[in-house]
Amino acid sequence: MTTKTLTCIVCPVGCQLEVTLDEQGKVQNITGNTCKRGYAYAETEFTNPTRTLTSTVKLTGSDTDILLPVRTASPIPKGKLFEAMTVLNQITVSAPVKIGDVVCADLVGTGIPLVACKNVG
């Protein structure tokens, strides 16, 4: 049995969680969370840690904006963040574009789409 501490990133409270793992690295017990989401976070953090990626892609056809802010529609595996960034660097979107428009349907094989975060044009 080992105990690890981590900071919950689900909300701005930032609870300090204590996670007890067995020899196989399976989560046995979680304390310190003040809500259910904290428990779920700690579980995925030790099995398949994920993060929401926010960045920009190139934008054409707008008088004001040359970059379009984008985000992954849901968190993607943490290990794929940099691979995703190299894909984002190749994407060009043309205005007009609306919040929620899908910019890339399946980002780096995650099945998770990349969506626009700003209304332009």
Binding site: P12, T54, S55, T56, P69, R71, I99, C117, K118, N119
Partner: peptide, 24 residues
Amino acid sequence: NQCIHAGFGLHMFGEELSGPEYSG
């Protein structure tokens, strides 16, 4: 407009928006 990271709107909308989505 330049705060493209997520984390805005938890109190107002119960979800975490990026800056441009919140102001949008």
